[in-house]
Write a protein that binds this DNA or RNA. Structure first.
Lengths: 259, 259
DNA sequence: AAGGTAATTGCACATAGTGCAATAACACTT
DNA sequence: AAGTGTTATTGCACTATGTGCAATTACCTT
């Protein structure tokens, strides 16, 4: 779905403190009160009170050397609790590890959140590029195999809203930037039962994804397998596609999907 | 330091919404509005407004099938941003990987937050038990090698406050539960320059830790190496102690420490 | 159709949250 | 050591927001 609908009686101060966390996350470095008040659009004394309240709760901390504010470790705690609570992760884990070993590639699970794909788990094969963990990271839906798979199972109106809001930026020369071309491809993805990112997200890398269903018979996530084009060659692709589709089906069955 | 001091003008609604995240994290499963209002000590309509405000911001979501509330994926996003911003992680990473390969064990970095140790990074050797990632997890300071190392570099009053608040629960038969015994051990740790968890946190597992300093010449984190007692034998310990101390020194130098 | 339970919302009122201005803290310059 | 500038912090008065209450809505069970 596109951007979340603002509730009729949102609590302003609650919204502000969560926006403070967003801003600190987005900024990438510690921020002064002046910067915070400018970004939040509030008086500096208000920014101070928001920051000190968040500090008291552990979500923000102040660097004693520079007096600037940054995210606090409670954020890690809460995220960890979230990951721990995700049924899909727990159920999928053994299957992902098996697939990672069998394929010797990197396996990920993504969900769609606010129009972007979010990585919620990852398993690595021995020969993988050993990239940093992507868990928690976001990526544009239109340029990833998992994202295209998830878009393929949304209503057309929702797809249009997402692409209107996020755009279709080109990440590589191969990225699809035309709505019509993407629509056609989503239709093909529904027909084939798998999706592919052919150097659309990252040059030199290919990715194949299959849908994960749950007991409501709806697609809730995508399972993907990715690696360098040298190993994701035309000869090897059919095998990898087959592996990821079988694995996704096995996980879906454990999630209550009846196919 | 012990529990954070409440600011004179904390913003109640800001505090409440962050407490909501805490409660959802702590509960471990989705919660109804009734439960949320009871735990927060507010009217159910207030709980509803807090929850829908947090939903709008992405930190909470509502399960459409049960109408219950749970943590939202924005929590992952913010935590990821936090990890990405930690200088110590970025600087330490190559050293940790080298140590993990060299020792073939699990290497972690922990910091002290609100009287507990928090795992902020981890690298694994090939022979490791391949445990789930601990990043973001907390553990009692008194029962971990990293925790004892961090306690050893605090003022005695702070140590007392932390132990008074968190207690000294026995996690295994070997866990130290006497303040006097722990104090004596912290003194020994300062003298030796490393700490050890001898099946105090987890039976069958040993852990050795060394301090990480930064340019202020103070201890900001602990580097640890852990594994099963079979590999952390009396014969092998001196080697592992030496490896972790050298690695910690190298990381500390990169952090501006002059020893 | 009726009853029960929980989520949601309109409304009026009280208080919490706010901006302003003053103060405090610190670093830098002279 | 004193003065200046900048940023963080806080007391205060006012008002806009947040609140609880009660009603409504939604859904499930009998």
């Amino acid at each position: 779905m596109a951007r979340r609908k603002k509730p009729a009686a949102a609590i302003q101060s609650a919204e502000r403190v969560l926006s403070l966390l967003d801003i600190l996350a987005q900024e990438g470095t510690e921020m002064s009160l002046t910067q915070i008040s400018q970004r939040l659009g509030v008086h500096i004394s208000t920014a101070h009170r928001l920051a000190t309240t968040a500090m008291y709760c552990g979500y923000v901390e102040q660097n004693p050397e520079t007096d600037k504010y940054r995210l606090g470790l409670k954020c890690l705690h809460v995220a960890n609790a979230l990951l721990h609570q995700l049924d899909l992760r727990r159920i999928a884990r053994p299957f992902m590890e098996k697939l990672a070993e069998e394929s010797d590639e990197t396996v990920n699970i993504c969900v769609l959140d606010d129009g972007e794909v979010v990585y919620i788990d990852k398993a690595e094969g021995g020969a993988s590029l050993r990239l940093f963990s992507r868990i928690g990271k976001r990526a544009p839906a239109h340029a990833t195999a998992a994202g295209k798979m998830l878009l393929a199972h949304l209503a057309l109106g929702d797809v249009e809203a997402i692409l209107k809001e996020h755009g279709m930026p080109a990440l590589t020369p191969q990225t699809i930037t035309s709505f019509d071309e993407l629509s056609a491809q989503l239709q093909e993805i529904r027909r084939l039962g798998y999706s592919m990112d052919d150097e659309e997200c990252e040059e030199g890398a290919r990715c194949v994804a299959a849908p994960l269903y749950d007991h409501t018979q709806r697609v809730i996530a995508a399972l993907s397998i990715s690696g360098p084009v040298s190993r994701f060659s035309v000869e090897n692709l059919p095998r990898l596609i087959s592996l990821v589709r079988e694995c996704a089906r096995d996980i879906s069955q454990q999630m209550g999907y009846a196919d």
